[in-house]
């Protein structure tokens, strides 16, 4: 019934002797939120970096099922992962374009589409009607997402001037502007207060249910993880130590041990 979206097998990443990910296999389903949790330095961000082509994995395979195609993510390097496979991501340290306005941030995310419409700039220089129309649409899409996170009134302000929580949300909807198949979120709840955290949960559930986008979520905040994830993968020292539903994870002795340490 659940459709497999992402398939990672035997993924390994080494940095000069340090094994950051060790033979990791897991999968993520469409219309589901899959959480990756684990202590600091477990290798969670590195998994994202391999998936999104920022690091070249030492070994293993990563496949993404896009409509009827099976895409080998290892073949794409950085920007192509987003462009061709539609894997969008956010970063552990927010990476907005701080000196550009909120709306401009959203427009850059729709770059490839708009670039085509502007006839690689030539048509755009002469304000061709088709380009103007596409640009209007892109603004509408941006507005749609900004409405959802309640930032429309700040659309023309610099993204760097937003409060921290709003920047987090903006980064997520900006990633949604590329119309992704898979959305990878690296600790989106970090630094949010309880109210913002609850709003974030709502946003993620909206993306999952209404936009039918699979979500891969790295999170330390257990309240977020337990509340919204359908599936949890637990990493420790680069190895998968547990995989299951959030209820199962809560009870697993291995997970408790990894987080709290043993008494010996």
């Amino acid at each position: 019934m659940a459709i497999k979206l992402l398939d990672v097998e035997n993924l390994t990443m080494k940095f000069e002797g340090l094994v950051a990910i060790d033979n990791l296999s897991f999968s993520a389903n469409k219309d589901q939120i899959t959480s990756i949790i684990g202590p600091n330095g477990a290798g969670k961000t590195t998994v994202f970096n391999c998936l999104t082509g920022f690091y070249k994995a030492t070994a293993g395979s990563m496949f993404l099922n896009k409509e009827n195609e099976k895409l080998n993510l290892r073949k794409f390097s950085d920007y192509r992962v987003a462009q061709r496979a539609g894997v969008a991501r956010t970063f552990q340290n927010i990476r907005l374009f701080p000196q550009m306005s909120v709306l401009e941030n959203m427009m850059v995310a729709q770059h490839n589409k708009l670039m085509d419409a502007s006839g690689f700039t030539l048509l755009g220089l002469f304000n061709s009607p088709s380009f103007v129309k596409k640009e209007k649409e892109a603004v509408e899409i941006s507005k749609y997402w900004l409405d959802i996170i309640g930032l429309t009134h700040r659309a023309d302000d610099d993204a760097g001037d937003l409060p921290y929580g709003d920047q987090r949300k903006l980064e997520i909807v900006r990633a949604m502007c590329i119309n992704p198949n898979l959305l990878c979120l690296d600790e989106p709840a970090a630094g949010l207060n309880a109210k913002e955290s609850a709003e974030l949960n709502k946003l993620l559930l909206f993306i999952k249910n209404k936009k039918k986008t699979g979500i891969l979520l790295i999170e330390h905040d257990m309240s977020v993880v337990m509340e919204i994830s359908d599936h949890v993968v637990v990493l420790n020292y680069g190895k998968k130590i547990f995989e299951g539903t959030s209820q199962e994870t809560k009870k697993s002795p291995e997970v408790i041990e990894a987080y709290l340490g043993t008494d010996e």
Binding site: F54, Y79, A88, T90, L96, F97, R174
Partner: peptide
Amino acid sequence: EDEIACKSLGVNP
């Protein structure tokens, strides 16, 4: 502003 963010959005740097 941020090349890495650009790549994550599919912009060909």
